[in-house]
Structure formats: structure tokens, C-alpha cells
Design a protein around this nucleic acid. Structure first.
Lengths: 217, 217
DNA sequence: GCATATTTGTCCGTATGTATA
DNA sequence: CTATACATACGGACAAATATG
């Protein structure tokens, strides 16, 4: 039974299916089908679905079933509107004492660089998300952490639609490093402004890729 | 089966029990007990618990059970830290076109005034929460709405601990009205600053009441 | 529009594992 | 350490709602 709950293991599976593109946005996810495939009880699968719905990776419509959410460019804009409010505010709220707590950010930047050298673009994507999650974690707010976890989960959903994420991530590996350097010097106000411009550019790139997709569809 | 799901009906019941003080913070909520009392299945109760945990009104610890969260003054500060980031940012993001969309805020202010005259302090509290939820709704962000719903749900949890919420709400009925007046004139930047000071004072009052409670306990 | 088949929501009883007295 | 209580997980079952022919 592993170390966690079975329901959590099932949720990991389904989560992977979404990021791997096996489950496309809008697809219905049948609890019985998942139950037979993973050889667990239907009740357990339903529990797993609740966990995923909690993070926004599935939506539950009463008496109709659970579905992979349909994401549009409007959703991209909404997610980034929140990021632009939250992340710079976190950087601005830091003080000199926090300079010595940047370890996780350093690690994420390093992971992004090695993944980039290996042309492992999904790896770059996960490292990027670790960077931003660790950044928000610096605020020390449990509620902000769960909000950011939900947002990054939705970002995974967004990126699953885009087939070639290389040009979306690669430019931002460098900017993560630059932001980290500013923070390490305690220049938080400057870093917050840098991050704001960063997020605006990132949103623009993703929205563009998205609307291109929407055209073709 | 009613109009919604039975699970939702059960969640409403338990939610009421918490606000009514029948379930105190830290209390364990047994699924079997709730199931027998409301005459529904344990499975359905567990579903209801998931819904409530999603809004932060219950916490789920693996292999231990479900509990009403223990709230401390640190939680009060955390909730208000988020409110101070989110709410002023919303006000700042508004434009002249939004002046004609303040109807729900007007209604909430009116409800607060009549409830205050009737010395219906819980009524004042709910009107106050409607005011702030409607304020955030002006941003037109679905994700921000669910975040705010979660925060207001937790505020209900906080206020359930305080027996006399009169002096906590009464001073802010007037300030809600003043903030609304500023927004109606399109003075959003000024309103954002006003709201920030407002939230600082509100936090101070609630933290004080809370630490008084913690002393006696 | 109707009858049918599928799916979902809900329930029960039980077995197994985990935490706590 | 043992024993008790409890939580997780299972599989089967049925009614209601939905989708399908």
C-alpha cells in the first residue's frame, strides 16, 4: 500500500495522465474506468477525484461526472493576474534576514540550468515551478502556499496543451537567475519590479501560444 | 434527494454547527457520529467533509480523522496579511467603468446599517463579509473569488470564538460606507490606501480580542 | 417523445491497517 | 505490549439521473 494513502496514489496517476496529454482538456474521466484500470475500488477513485478537484485539476459536475477543465486564454490571463499580485508582493515583503533563506531558490535555478543543458524541457518547467513556489514560501504564509500550489497545478494544465514548451521556458531560466541575484543582494524592491515585468512577458508568450492553438482548433 | 447533493446538505449542517459554537476549534468530528445523527451514510459524510476541508472549515489528518481547525492569533495575522495584499490591489485595479457596478456593495452597506440598528451583530458580520466578497468580485477573477470565499469562511471560524463581536464590527460599518463613497467618485487609489489602513485597524482589534481569549485559556 | 442502457450518487457490511489508552 | 477504537479501503448493491437509440 506504499507510504501514503491509496487515494493519493491514484490521484498522482491521474495527474500524470493529464500532464502527459493522455487526458485532454474537456475529457470526461470515468471513475469506473479508472477503478478497473488501476485495480482499486470505485469509492477510492472518487476520493482521489476529490483531491484533484481540490487543486483544480478536475472539475466535478453533479450527476454528470468529472472532467478535465477546459482552459482558454482567459484562464491564462486570470492565473497571471493573480501571480502578478501575489509574487511581487511577497518579494517586497522580505527583509535582510531573508537573504539567508534562499537555498531552495538556488537549487531550483541550478536544476533548471542542468535540465536546460540536457534539453529536458519538461524538467525545465518543473524546476521553474519549484522556483516560484519556493519564492512564495518565503512569505511564511500557509494560506499563500496552498493558493500558490493551486495556481502551479493549473499552470501544469495550461502547459499540457502546448506541444513545444521550449521557447516558453528557456528565456526565463536566465531571468530567474537574475531575480535571485537581486534578492541575494537584498534589493527586494528592485527585484519586485523585475519580477512584475518578467510575469508580464511570460503571460504574453503563453497567451500568444494559446491563441494560436485556439485558432487552429 | 432535494435540489443539491445530500453531501452538500450535510456540509451546510456541519458548517452551521461550527458557527453556532456547537463544534469548538480543535474538536474531532466523527464521521460515524454525524452519519447516525443526520441519518446518512458515512461515505456521504466523508464527501461533505471534503467539501468543508476545501473551504478550510475542517482539516483532515491522515489516519487520524477530521477536526475543527485550531485557530490562533497567528492565523488571524495570516488571513489579514492576504487580505491586505488582495483587497487593496483589487480596488487599485478598477477603472471609471466600474463605478456603475457597485450595486452589491451598496446593498451590503445598507444591510449592515439596518442590522446595526437592530443590534443584530451576527447580521452585521455577514453583511460585512458580503461587502468584502462583492468588492473582490469586482475584479472579475474566478480564482480570486474562490480564494476570497475561503478567507471569509475562515473569518467565520475566527469570529465563532469571540463571544461579543459587537465592538469588532460596529466601527467598520461606517468605514465600509466611506470606502464605498470614495469608490463611487472614482477615487480608487485613495480608496486603496483607505482600505489598507482599515484592514490594519481591523486586524489589530481582532488580534487583541484573540490574545485576550488565549490568556484566559 | 419514448424506452432503454449507462453512469452517477448513495448506502451497507466487512476486512485490514493505524494510532492511542 | 496488549487491547481497543477508529480510519482507510474494498466490493457489491440499488435508485435516480443522464445519455443513447
Amino acid at each position: 500500500m506504499g507510504q501514503g494513502s491509496t487515494a493519493r496514489a491514484v490521484s498522482e496517476h491521474v495527474s500524470d495522465w493529464i500532464t502527459e496529454g493522455r487526458l485532454l482538456p474537456g475529457a470526461k474521466v470515468s471513475d469506473t474506468a479508472v477503478a478497473t484500470e488501476l485495480e482499486v475500488s470505485r469509492n477510492t477513485v472518487r476520493e482521489a477525484f476529490r483531491l484533484l478537484a481540490h487543486d483544480g485539476l478536475l472539475v466535478h459536475e453533479f450527476n454528470r461526472g468529472v472532467f478535465v477543465p477546459l482552459v482558454t486564454s482567459a484562464d491564462v490571463r486570470d492565473v497571471y493576474r493573480l501571480r502578478r499580485v501575489i509574487e511581487p508582493a511577497v518579494v517586497r515583503s522580505l527583509s535582510a534576514a531573508d537573504v539567508h533563506r534562499l537555498g531552495p531558490l538556488q537549487a531550483a535555478v541550478g536544476a533548471a540550468r542542468t535540465a536546460s543543458r540536457r534539453r529536458d524541457w519538461p524538467g525545465v518547467g518543473t524546476a521553474n515551478m519549484h522556483f516560484h513556489r519556493s519564492l512564495v514560501a518565503l512569505a511564511g504564509s500557509p494560506r499563500l502556499d496552498v493558493m500558490m500550489r493551486r495556481l502551479t497545478a493549473e499552470l501544469r494544465l495550461l502547459f499540457a496543451v502546448i506541444d513545444d514548451p521550449r521557447f516558453l521556458y528557456q528565456p526565463f531560466v536566465k531571468r530567474n537567475r537574475e531575480l535571485l541575484a537581486l534578492m541575494a543582494k537584498g534589493r527586494f524592491e528592485e527585484g519586485a519590479g523585475f519580477l512584475e515585468a518578467y510575469l508580464v512577458d511570460s503571460e504574453g508568450a503563453i497567451v500568444a501560444a494559446f491563441e494560436e492553438k485556439e485558432q487552429s482548433a
